[in-house]
Simulated scan of single mutants.
Amino acid sequence: MAEGMKRRPVVAIDGPAGAGKSTLAAHLARTFGFVNLETGAMYRALALKAIESDLDFDEEGPLLALVGDTRIGLEPQRDGNRVMLDGMDVSRRIRDTDVTQAASRISVHPHLRAWMVDLQRAMGSQGGVVMEGRDIGTAVFPDAEVKIFLDADPAVRGNRRYRQATPSPTITEEAILKELKERDQRDRNRAESPLRPAEDAVILDSTALTLDEVLAKAEEIVRTHLPG
Rank of each mutant, 00 (worst) to 15 (best):
R113S: 00
F141W: 03
G40V: 02
M131S: 01
A50D: 00
E192N: 04
A102W: 02
S125N: 09
L28C: 07
V67E: 06
M116R: 00
I203P: 13
M84G: 07
T224I: 10
L85C: 11
A2I: 07
T31W: 08
L46T: 06
R71W: 09
E59W: 09
I72K: 08
D54K: 10
D153S: 14
V146C: 07
S193C: 12
H111G: 03
R93F: 03
D96G: 07
W115V: 13
E174H: 11
E75K: 13
E145I: 01
G80L: 10
E179Q: 10
P154R: 14
P197V: 04
G80F: 09
P227N: 05
R82P: 01
L112V: 05
L209W: 09
R190N: 06
D56Q: 11
Q185M: 12
F32A: 03
G87L: 07
A144E: 09
K217H: 13
L66A: 03
T23K: 13
R160P: 09
G61H: 08
P110A: 02
A29P: 06
K6P: 02
D89S: 06
A191R: 13
R183T: 11
A144V: 14
F57Q: 05
V214Y: 02
A122D: 11
L195G: 00
H109G: 03
V156K: 08
R161D: 12
N81W: 06
I136N: 00
A29Q: 08
D79H: 11
A29C: 08
A165R: 15
M84C: 13
A41I: 05
K21M: 04
A102V: 06
M88H: 07
H27D: 10
H109Q: 07
P62S: 02
G18H: 09
L119A: 05
T207F: 05
P16Y: 02
E179D: 15
L46Q: 02
Y43H: 03
L150Q: 08
T23D: 05
T166R: 14
A103E: 02
T138R: 11
R161K: 15
I94D: 00
M5D: 06
E174Q: 15
R113E: 03
D56S: 12
K21N: 04
V35M: 04
D14E: 08
R134I: 01
D89M: 11
